[in-house]
Amino acid sequence: MISIKNVSKWYGDFKVLTDCTTEVQKGEVVVVCGPSGSGKSTLIKCVNGLEPFQSGDIIVDGISVGSPKTDLPKLRSRVGMVFQHFELFPHLSITDNLALAQIKVLGRKEDEAKKKGLALLDRVGLSAHAAKFPGQLSGGQQQRVAIARALAMDPIAMLFDEPTSALDPEMINEVLDVMVQLAHEGMTMMCVTHEMGFARKVANRVIFMDQGAIVEDANKDDFFGSPRSERAQTFLSKILQH
């Protein structure tokens, strides 16, 4: 479904991604972790072309992201993305947040889009908040709306860029619960996250990145059992200690 081939990226002279190669199969859940500044967010933003890369290629559902001929908006409309800071549109109600892209990008009728939005809002347990504005919701609620907004586009895969990093601790689980449910339903997911409990529960594979390179790309059990690289071992011991 998502195939990343030898991707490298520079900011001027600074190399942020070094020869990254990995794959996410249909229905697979892949967790990407690593210290901050390791390039994991940059890599996931390359997958739907939000960040350009200079060499290598990424193929999403048979379409090359790097090719200048690719219709990037069309490709992006088929891949859902959830951001660290939610990025709901603050000037629109929750209902309109959910309906906007369905109407403007997919060309759905307004009542059809709103109906679909409401159904998804119900699924993330927030149907009572449809008429509110994003600023009136808690961080956890906003992130659940953001997930529903992405799902409303009927994506073939979902990208999560540190979806719980900006949340208060007591709100993390409500978001993770939605993600776990999605994973159980067979959604193809690529998640940048430090939530190792989530990784243990639903991930098929775990990718560990450091200094722009993929250091470790292993099945979940292998990763948590015996990570090969020393860097991954130190990282794991640091975040799993408590």
């Binding site: 939000l50 908006p73 951001f83 990025e87 892209a101 990008v105 992405a150």
Partner: peptide, 15 residues
Amino acid sequence: ISKGQVNAAYALGMS
């Protein structure tokens, strides 16, 4: 307006 808003709109497939 934060760059994240632009990214969010782009990620939904908007031009």
